[in-house]
Design a protein around this nucleic acid. Structure first.
Lengths: 332, 332
DNA sequence: GTTTCTTACATTATTGATTAAATAAATGAA
DNA sequence: TTCATTTATTTAATCAATAATGTAAGAAAC
């Protein structure tokens, strides 16, 4: 049997309320009794039961984290940012993989609320009306990280995806390419289908160009679809000389796919990736890429959540972190 | 205010015990009352409070996971295996990063036990006496994943690291190299310092060779130390023609470091990595590597933990999963 | 027809903390 | 010394479930 606050109270000859006060650092305890209690705690090896505490105080000091896939390099980095800040504020995290499946997401949300988490960090793809409904119904704050709600109803932390892509593609166009191909993740995710794509479109149109569907390849974020993408491009009659790729992992695929066909990067074909995961320096040539500060997005999202959980007033619920382009050797 | 079991009981005109029985699928409820209760639950949007349930039942259906660093490709994959099986058995996981820091590990262990987790999966480096003491003192089962306790006192899931390295190095030696260099992770971790290293030594000695310290480089698992390692080797007077590398990420560094020096892999220098992370196919040449089934290790560890939590009898507490070598293009 | 068993519930106690209200003790001012 | 305040501590209610025990109604056994 584990020792309870009652055992400690008896051992120290005080009431459980006093023990509770000592444990919680309440100042209204005489130093001598505090000492007695502390000794009793030590003697019995008492460890407060967080479940009982959670029931009584209605705070569990744990937050839920819904993430598409923790084994993805991108999300794992985000998760680390979340966890570090959570730890800093004495929260633990319950981590759940959703695979971006809407049913799972809703189900997990309810499981977490059932477990009485004090808040939730949500990462996903497309945010539907139903998501927002569920979020609103929740009794605790929810913050989205690297996930956009186009109506800005839910607090979130992101970068300016549209401008980030716009800048990268514009850079390539200014290098004199007559066209820039685009490898993107699934378009159902509005980050891909709306923001990033619009950035691409805008950059093209600014140069008097139009989006050419044969120059756009929709992959599934994996290295292999990066390879597929170049192969498709190189088999077409309009071979690109510059490719913007929506994620680093696909960009590695693109570089290797091109090299496998005997092309030289960046001489024959320039490539810019997106995210600046650790992969970007693990290729030859090293990858020029848009820096999305994943760790920071996670950290800031968690920090925002702590404020909301504390009922502090926050000026801006939709935070946009800065981005930049890191030029390496895959561009001239 | 959230609706409680009491509200449902009143709404349905039954006692809370009956509601509890319906919610928990106890068969001793007349279909007609079950229906009444279910309707009341639906009407009120009742969601059981897992904290109260946990206090009363002494089960939280959550397990703790202590992991060195979730942002590492290796551990993230392990974590995914753990989480998938946990979900399958209706557990949630509380995930904590330890950075392999002993104080943090012990602290996290106590935090998790305070939160009344039903079990713990532990991943770390060196397991000290103190670790084992703490593990034994815990009132819930603990399983280690990809982590060895040399005394086999703690249940664990691993592969046979010594033999895995032995086979890889032997393979290189049989290819006719007069020596095989070795890039390893920190030797404080007995997996590196004892098992893997012994595998290396054994393979060498079987060919009448001895370990030459100048042919051993201790890295910190990062890509960059892989590069450092080759550079050190190539600057020495005994330039290796084959290198065994303790992790894939360092192996990528080794390959690129060698290529940066104008060497060809595998013609001038053969490389074998370890782990078979997704990185292995993201290099040119693709990396031959020892397959450590990370996802499976996590999954099996979690499965083992569910059995222990259920107090099922398990035949073998120390499970050793099979490994193999995946040959790709970094070896001849 | 009484007794015994089930079935289907209800009642009440319990879980291990927090917290508000009540009370006791200590301190200070008049 | 007395009363008011402040400080320290206890008592008891509460949190939202589960678990153990109790009970009424009907079926089966004798």
């Amino acid at each position: 049997m584990n020792t309870t606050i009652y055992d400690v109270a008896r051992e120290a000859g005080v009431s459980m309320a006093t023990v509770s006060r000592v444990v919680n650092g309440n100042p209204n305890v005489k130093p001598s009794t505090r000492k007695k209690v502390l000794e009793a705690i030590e003697r019995l090896g008492y460890r407060p039961n967080a479940v009982a505490r959670g029931l009584a105080s209605k705070k569990t000091t744990t937050v839920g984290v819904i993430i598409p896939d923790i084994s993805s390099i991108f999300f794992a980095e985000l998760a680390r940012g979340i966890e570090d800040i959570a730890t800093m504020y004495k929260y633990n995290i319950i981590l759940c993989n959703s695979d971006q499946n809407k049913e799972k997401e809703i189900h997990l949300l309810n499981t977490l609320l059932g477990k009485q988490v004090d808040g939730i960090v949500f990462m996903g793809g497309k945010i539907t009306e139903e998501h927002v409904e569920e979020f609103k119904r929740a009794s605790v704050p929810i913050v989205m990280a690297a996930t956009v709600d186009m109506n800005e109803e839910v607090p979130s932390v992101n970068i300016d995806y549209q401008n980030a892509v716009y800048e990268a593609v514009s850079h390539l166009l200014q290098n004199g390419h007559s066209s820039v191909a685009y490898v993107t993740g699934p378009l159902e995710d509005p980050i891909n289908g709306y923001y990033k794509f619009n950035g691409y479109r805008k950059a093209l149109e600014e140069q008097g160009l139009k989006v050419d569907d044969s120059q756009v390849f929709v992959g599934d974020y994996t290295y292999d679809t990066g390879i597929e993408a170049v192969e498709t491009f190189l088999d077409s009659d309009k071979k690109p000389t510059a490719i913007f790729v929506g994620t680093d992992e696909m960009a590695l695929g693109v570089i290797h796919g091109a090299q496998d066909r005997g092309l030289k990067v960046p001489e024959d074909i320039e490539v810019i990736g997106f995210d600046n995961t650790r992969l970007a320096t693990m290729v030859r040539p090293t990858l020029s890429t848009v820096v999305q500060p994943m760790y920071d997005i996670g950290a800031v999202a968690m920090r925002l959540l702590t404020k909301l959980m504390n009922k502090e007033t926050v000026e801006e619920h939709t935070v946009v972190l800065p981005h930049r382009i890191q030029f390496r050797d895959s561009t001239k």
